[in-house]
């Protein structure tokens, strides 16, 4: 807030009203609904709702398909986060070394961020198509029989690649910015002290890059957990046999397709807790960064 402020209160309320209205009607109210419904159950005809305490949650965690979904989510999230981070870091380090061509490479590497995850999914779905796709053909030559509609592992690899692909661009940009913000004098001092490029990377660059890395890790975890719905929906639809059924896809399927209100609501609340935890970590980090 400013030292001096305007005192037209009515105007202030008017200015903030649209944001508040949308926030309350489409964010807070539905979230509240989800929380309430997670403690309720509808009867078979949808006429009565009863309070059932934690029954929905108990049912949820007793459901093997939900447990599988949790496991799948962990594998998927970790795989997407780490593969996109490592590839991006490698590219960023390479760009950092090139002097003149850097901006050109950057332009050629950032645009996948703009491609909709759903479109990315369809592209890789096509590339990996077992009958006509070029990648299964190459794999077949190497003796691997690729079929993501039958093998869960193939399906997982497919969705991880599709989800990580646009995210590499994003991470790349932040790594480049992070590398550029490391004062050249530090690396120069290390070079004068006789540290070679590899040693410099591990003793100077990587530690100084750790705030960026940590920040990106949280952002990527959130992305992989919550924003990858289109990738799954446009490709495997959670299959085969639930092998790519991540939590956000399951909540949609059970609630929107299966119309299982109580379970879907309980799943929503679980997701909510996860986002809150990740946000807390992220903001905790921001606080710490401020103190540097």
């Amino acid at each position: 807030m400013k030292r001096t402020t305007f005192n037209q209160r009515a105007l202030a309320y008017l200015l903030i009203a649209p944001q508040m209205a949308v926030t309350i009607v489409f964010f807070l109210w539905p979230t509240g609904q989800a929380i309430v419904q997670s403690f309720q159950q509808e009867d078979a005809f949808g006429l009565h709702t009863n309070w059932v305490g934690f029954a929905n949650y108990q049912a949820l965690f007793a459901d093997p398909s939900y447990i599988q979904s949790l496991e799948v989510t962990v594998i998927f999230t970790v795989a997407v986060t780490f593969s996109s981070l490592i590839v991006a870091l490698l590219l960023a380090l390479a760009v950092d070394r090139t002097v003149k061509a850097g901006p050109t490479y950057t332009t050629l590497l950032v645009w996948p961020y703009a491609v909709a995850p759903a479109v990315v999914g369809v592209l890789w779905w096509f590339l990996f198509n077992p009958t006509i796709g070029p990648l299964p053909y190459v794999l077949g030559q190497m003796g691997y029989n690729w079929d993501h509609s039958l093998h869960g592992q193939d399906a997982m690899i497919l969705v991880v690649i599709a989800a990580a692909w646009p995210q590499v661009s994003y991470n790349f940009l932040f790594f480049v910015a992070g590398l550029q913000s490391i004062p050249a004098s530090l690396r120069e001092a290390a070079a004068i002290d006789g540290a070679g490029p590899v040693k410099r990377f591990f003793t100077i660059t990587l530690p100084l890059l750790s705030p960026t890395t940590f920040f990106l890790m949280v952002v990527n975890l959130v992305y992989a957990m919550f924003n990858t719905f289109p990738v799954i929906h446009a490709t495997t639809q959670g299959g085969p046999a639930g092998s790519t059924d991540i939590l956000v896809f399951k909540v949609y399927e059970d609630g929107f397709v299966g119309l299982n209100l109580g379970s879907s609501a309980a799943q929503s609340v679980v997701l909510l807790v996860i986002v809150i935890a990740l946000t807390a970590v992220q903001f905790g980090w921001v606080e710490r960064r401020v103190q540097y």
């Binding site: 944001q19 508040m20 926030t23 309350i24 489409f26 964010f27 807070l28 109210w29 539905p30 979230t31 609904q33 989800a34 419904q37 919550f226 924003n227 719905f229 956000v248 909540v251 949609y252 609630g255 929107f256 209100l261 879907s264 609501a265 929503s268 997701l271 909510l272 986002v275 809150i276 946000t279």
Partner: peptide, 19 residues
């Protein structure tokens, strides 16, 4: 109130929002 909407991606509240 604005701040906490950060923690409510549409994927999480899909069904009630649809309603």
């Amino acid at each position: 109130l604005i701040f906490i909407t950060l923690m409510m991606p549409v994927e999480v509240r899909i069904l009630p929002t649809y309603k």
